[in-house]
């Protein structure tokens, strides 16, 4: 389960992340937040890209982030170290892009048929609705979880960028969402 983290602990390796789900779940913004935190605050190299086109309207949507301590040559993902899937469709589509040793994190309510036994499942959308009051912040909850589980981004950087990027008036809700993400991941690790 922690293989991805160990690999990352080496430091300079390339680490590839895909945040996927359906359009409107805020995954592109989540990708930008993650990239900004890792790139501008944690000080690693980072490339963020996304799929454009009709799929951005309700179909499968994705944001990719490539992280490395060294110069990043090829900017797109080749084999994923981490896949976050908030829908079954996204999980089915992108699972085959993962490394065998990769980490899969899914929304356990949405992805009812995970393609593997080895994965982390959290009810991100339900928790966002119940504990924060809006389903929209599920993307931020999942960022917190990614941070806690993989260590690919520092908590400090993530907190700073979520604060910066949150629309005015929603800072508090977003910070709560992030803390919730940290918490559920920590509990799962026990």
């Amino acid at each position: 389960m922690n293989r991805a983290k160990e690999k990352h602990a080496v430091g300079s390796d390339r680490y590839e992340i895909r945040l996927s789900g359906s359009g409107g779940q805020g995954l592109i913004l989540a990708g930008v937040i993650l990239a900004q935190a890792i790139g501008t605050i944690d000080g690693k190299n980072v490339v963020q890209s996304q799929s454009y086109g009709p799929e951005a309207r309700g179909g499968a949507s994705r944001a990719d982030v490539v992280v490395s301590g060294d110069e990043i040559y090829y900017p797109k993902t080749m084999k994923l170290d981490l896949l976050l899937a908030l829908t079954q469709e996204a999980c089915d589509t992108y699972f085959r892009d993962m490394k065998e040793t990769g980490t899969l994190i899914v929304d356990s309510n949405m992805v009812t048929q995970p393609p593997t036994q080895i994965y982390h499942g959290f009810p991100f959308i339900q928790l966002a609705k119940e504990e924060i009051g809006i389903a929209m912040v599920a993307n931020v909850v999942s960022l917190g979880t990614i941070c806690e589980l993989t260590g690919i981004v520092s908590k400090k950087a993530l907190i700073e960028v979520v604060k910066m990027r949150a629309p005015r008036g929603t800072e508090e809700k977003n910070m709560k969402a992030l803390e919730l993400g940290f918490k559920i991941a920590k509990e799962a690790k026990k």
Partner: peptide, 10 residues
């Protein structure tokens, strides 16, 4: 090109 124009880097 579409990729360099839309990707984000530091």
């Amino acid at each position: 090109d579409e990729v360099t124009a839309h990707m984000r880097e530091k």
